[in-house]
């Protein structure tokens, strides 16, 4: 996944005190995203690539680039698997 991403148009997002809630209007499922996850999602939907988002996360949270890439890859897999986020093609 080296491209950019966009939020599925069928998903409603509401920011909360501890992150965000995402509601998939077609499936009726809703999800909780923690603060770090919401920060990453915001970067991705604002045009950051996976690599750029990892660099931002590593810088903000003082973690290694490797850890940041791994955590973002896991988050992306979850978001795409749930059809909340889609890759621009």
């Amino acid at each position: 996944m080296s491209g950019t991403f966009f939020l599925n148009p069928q998903v409603s997002l509401a920011e909360t005190d501890d992150g965000a809630v995402l509601l998939h209007e077609r499936t009726g499922r809703y999800w909780q995203l923690n603060t770090t996850g919401f920060s990453v999602l915001r970067g991705l939907t604002n045009g950051q690539t996976c690599e750029q988002a990892a660099q931002t996360l590593a810088s903000q949270c003082a973690i290694s680039d490797t850890r940041a890439r791994s955590d973002i890859a896991a988050l992306l897999a979850s978001l795409c698997s749930a059809d909340l986020l889609r890759e621009c093609r």
Partner: peptide, 13 residues
């Protein structure tokens, strides 16, 4: 403190 990004299924309606 670092909290890894996490997505949690809450439910459905």
């Amino acid at each position: 403190g670092y909290e890894p990004p996490a997505l949690t299924a809450v439910g459905e309606f």
